[in-house]
Simulated assay, not measured.
Amino acid sequence: MQNKFAAVFAIFAGLSLPALAQAAPPAAGPGVLTQVMFFLPLILIFYFLLIRPQQQRAKKHKLMVENVKRGDSVVTSGGLIGKVTKVGDTEVTVELAENVRVRVIKAMVVEVRGKSEPVAAND
């Protein structure tokens, strides 16, 4: 019985030694320049489809918020529509109804309607 184990062990040991002694072939993958040329169009697509439009929207919103003045009709992010009665550095006071005034952070103003633009009717 021990002879069988010794013979099987010798066979497996003989088979595994040449496999360990062989060197692995060098990895032949794409070069760095090829990888950069692949990812560059993807980065440009992401920039023009996602990043640039978001930056333009943020710039437009910032300009709109900076130009809010007394008497403008505004819509807040909560959906409230009112008339601006006081403008501060970071806040505006909005009159929602007669003698109902709330302070709103300027960044939460979503839309500024001019003095002459009426609110749409619910017909």
Rank of each mutant, 00 (worst) to 15 (best):
V68T: 06
T90L: 11
K83I: 09
I81N: 07
T93H: 07
D89Q: 13
A23H: 09
L49V: 02
V110Q: 14
R113T: 00
M64H: 07
T85N: 04
A97K: 07
D123Y: 13
L33R: 10
A7S: 04
Y47S: 05
K4I: 11
R103P: 00
Q54R: 15
Q2A: 09
F9D: 07
P118F: 08
G78D: 14
F5G: 00
L49R: 02
I45K: 05
E91M: 02
V87A: 10
E91V: 02
V74L: 04
A121V: 08
A6N: 11
K115S: 14
S77L: 10
V8W: 10
A13R: 03
K59T: 13
T85L: 00
V102Q: 10
A28M: 02
I51G: 04
I45L: 13
A121R: 06
F38R: 14
A10I: 09
T34D: 03
P25C: 01
K83R: 15
A7L: 13
R70Q: 13
T90I: 07
N122G: 01
Q2N: 12
V94M: 10
S16D: 07
L33D: 06
A13D: 08
P30N: 15
E66M: 05
A10Y: 04
L17S: 04
F5W: 02
V75W: 06
S116W: 02
R57P: 03
N3V: 06
Q22I: 13
V92F: 01
N122L: 04
L40N: 10
G71D: 09
R52N: 12
L15F: 14
A24F: 11
T34A: 06
L50E: 01
G79C: 07
Q35V: 01
R113F: 04
K86E: 14
K4N: 09
V32N: 05
N99M: 06
L20M: 13
